[in-house]
Design a protein around this nucleic acid. Structure first.
Lengths: 193, 193, 193, 193
DNA sequence: ACCGGCGGGACGACCCGTTTAT
DNA sequence: ATAAACGGGTCGTCCCGCCGGT
């Protein structure tokens, strides 16, 4: 059975990485926010901070992929794009423009040595792209086009989250959403013809 | 006359923020890479690390804006987009997939207290968007459309840089470039008609 | 029935104290080397690390005293000295010059508060000296002389083990053995005359 | 100019290693006893605890070698032995039977990785032996005999210090002194004949 | 003005010896 | 008889003053 402390620590880590990134988040911060006892971190995460971060990213990735997958099942590719942008915008707005994307927050702080964590980051990005690619192909995109569009969507959302958090406004996300939906629609219409 | 040490420190800071972000970069790292004397930090940057970072971002922003402006003067909006993506891709590839965007590297690590630095970050993003917006309007976009497209371009490039650095490949940047150019072209064509 | 885990832990502790002393040996090291389960420490050794160490020293002391006693029964005092030095040299050489004397390894790391462990250390030294004293008296030494020679022998061996481990060679032990045997022989000859 | 803090830290380290060895001495202990500020340690000893220990051992070694050398200049080999044992006994007795030999205290706690420190330990032992060997040869010993006798003397003193500290009495040192002097005298007399 | 030595306190992550709850 | 959990403490080092030189 997963311990309660452990779970709270992972959740706190996700939130903190969304707010200040990996390097600026101390284990003390995680402990303070989660209310977990100091000694527990090494027990639950023998690999230390990096292992905690890996788990946090995996959890965030899994949740967002589940969300995306549901959107894919219930709507068109354009709907999925809208859902993806909305997912990011929601998290940001709900937290008073504090919480961006934890994957980005970790990715930017990594140096070459953190191989294991870097792999988790890459995997998280890949998972999003895979879901988007599948939806785009399902709706008529060629494989190459789907790959490019998926990259554009993920990149735009990550970047827009950056802009939006910086200026404390969802405007960049809203703008990106409009253009993304229009572009995807046009691309699929052209291809499908 | 601007001191040599000061200059080297700023350049080292830019590079390090591109590689590992703000929080993961210590002043010791900056000193080591720049070869600057230890006692000089507070002489040149009484505000400490934050002031050094502000200067580093301003310098990077100014250089990239100069580059973008030249592209605007010499080509279409689509050319500017290509140049912008290329600028990011070049820096990344030239550094062996180490150096992303220093503005992003700082932005993600900031907490609410770093007001001054946050302002510099916002300003840097705004500067890029302003140049792009102007070029788009010049080429026929409506103000609102130009604003949205500029947001999309800046966001896509920042995000693609993230993806590209993570997977040590320029593929995401290349993919984003193709889609961005195609979308901007289509948008301007529609509007201008 | 003596538990298997318990036994393995004691043996691992002996070896580790011989290699790195008391303070540098963590319970985790003991667990890792013995393969014993983590939770068992407090079951078997309610007194914690100190109690484990006490038991380890007692076991080592008992084994070496048995060895010495057999040498006493089978030979002259000079033979006993040879056996004593050889016992130390064997353990050291067999372990690739890793394992010295666990009693020394514990003794040096103790502070004034560790009364119980200090007593075990003293007792271990006393036991060796007692056996040597008895053999020397049996072979003709006066009580005072036997006491002094026993101190010299134990001290020399402990010290030579230190030197030998440090320079990864049995030379100091060999040198000490030669001189010790010669001195003991001369002393007994003079007395007995 | 050597800083005052630095000097006090080294002296505190020597004393603490004499009392509890290397592993049981924390940098916090050194700081507390020396009154030095925490931030200074890394400035003075970039190599951390190991570098501080190396310096402490070198200082103790140098001081004791100076002492031994003076004894060599002013007396016979037997006098040197007496001085050597007395040096150890004095330090121990003066400190209320707390302070043994710092070289031993470090040597026992080292693992295979601490190569640099181990070299300093070996060097310290070698220095004592060299001085003793020279004095013995000067007084008529053959080279091989001098080597063996020097090993015996150093080993005996180190070991006797161990015993003496453990039982809080100088008796082992006194006993060893008597036997050592008698043995060295006899050895030199025999050789010189 | 610029720079080096040094000091200074606060945390950083890691991990240790121990106890509570099975 | 064992795993989960717990605080306290380790070393490293970070960011930052304060002087004395030059």
């Amino acid at each position: 059975v997963p311990s309660d402390s452990r779970d709270r620590m992972v959740r706190a880590a996700v939130d903190l990485f969304r707010e200040r990134g990996y390097a600026a988040t101390s284990l003390g911060d995680v402990l303070a926010r989660s209310g977990a006892p100091r000694g527990s971190i090494y027990h639950h995460f023998p690999g230390g901070k990096a292992e905690l971060a890996a788990e946090a990213l995996r959890r965030y990735s899994a949740a967002s992929v589940r969300f995306l997958t549901r959107a894919v099942e219930g709507g068109s590719a354009a709907d999925v794009v809208r859902a993806f942008v909305g997912y990011a915008a929601d998290g940001l707005a709900r937290s008073g423009f504090q919480q961006g994307c934890p994957v980005a927050g970790v990715a930017l702080d990594l140096t070459q040595e953190d191989g294991a964590l870097a792999a988790v980051v890459t995997e998280a990005f890949a998972a999003w792209r895979a879901v988007l690619r599948a939806a785009l192909e399902r709706d008529g995109a060629t494989p190459a086009q789907a790959r490019r569009l998926a990259a554009l969507v993920v990149a735009s959302v990550e970047g827009a989250l950056l802009l939006a958090r910086a200026e404390r406004s969802t405007a960049p996300l809203d703008d990106v959403k409009v253009e993304l939906v229009s572009h995807v629609r046009a691309a699929l219409a052209t291809t499908g013809r």
